[in-house]
Design a protein around this nucleic acid. Structure first.
Lengths: 154, 154
DNA sequence: ACTCTAAAATCAAGATACTTTATTTTCGAG
DNA sequence: CTCGAAAATAAAGTATCTTGATTTTAGAGT
């Protein structure tokens, strides 16, 4: 059937556009705040993952440990992150977001967050179940293939 | 109601996780292929937007025109993009993806693309309508606020 | 308890990428 | 047909990244 395939393509395109738009959104913020791409990516990871080790961060960003140290120095100087001792491993540190970054970014993101919350609230429970389920499965696939590429299985 | 709000938060979190996972996926690819973050972002934009001018690219990436020129030189040397004359403006150029990049990246993305297509195909028309509609509205909000930040309205 | 290998983070030197400023070419308004 | 401005490039200086070495500590093996 033709209509069906059109619909499937529409969903695929919408998912891609969504990802691109989120990159452009963050680019607009980092241009405003004066951050480079890697520093901004680091803050994004921290804001969704919570506390991370420098090792985690260098893995996620794809930077070497050397440039991760330098990046964390920059972000710490700007008071956008904080280094804490790692209670489980005295060699390592834990990185968390500093309130100053929250305060700096809040005015730029709060309006969008509110609109997205309103958009979501406009759907019924049944619809939200479908959406959440789809997004989760879609993301799980992405994670699975990321893992495969990292482990040289592809 | 409590269940309802949990569901809303679940959707919001799933949307964020989805964006982060797509960044991590691209990072895994660029690590493998040996591209830096900006070069990889540039190829992402080109692959979804099609043909772009260097001006567009410097806008999307947030780079100055100087570094955009340097980046396009790198990508052209690697045969990942092609510069074409712009028929509408002899000052400018048009940038398009070179087949070599398609061939280089295909083995790394084709498996995921197939699984995502299967996932999407497993939904009914009614469900896909809901999903496409949600993604489109969600993305439109992001675009709207990106525009506002770029125009200093926030 | 005691090595010993390896991991986490850092540092310094050299390589790469980015910004700033200036220049060339072409557009488009008046 | 002039003139200010836009698109792309180039070169010099600054910032960031990689590589390789170093320090500290974890954890496995004896």
């Amino acid at each position: 059937m033709n209509t069906k395939r059109d619909l499937e393509i529409r969903v695929m395109m919408a998912a891609r556009e969504n990802n691109i738009s989120s990159i452009l959104f963050r680019n607009s913020i980092r241009s405003r705040v004066g951050l480079n791409i890697t520093d901004s990516e680091c803050l994004s990871f921290l804001s969704i993952k919570g506390v991370l080790t420098p090792k985690d961060i260098s893995h996620y960003t794809g930077l070497t440990t050397g440039s991760t140290t330098a990046m964390l120095d920059r972000l710490e100087n700007a008071q956008f992150i904080r280094r804490k001792p790692n209670p489980d491993d005295r060699r390592g540190a834990l990185i968390e977001i500093h309130e100053k970054w929250i305060e700096t970014s809040r005015p730029l993101v709060v309006g969008l967050q509110k609109e997205q919350a309103e958009l979501i609230a406009s759907y019924s429970d049944a619809e939200l179940e479908i959406i959440a389920d789809f997004l989760t499965r879609f993301t799980d696939n992405v994670k699975k293939y990321t893992e495969m590429i990292e482990q040289d299985l592809i």
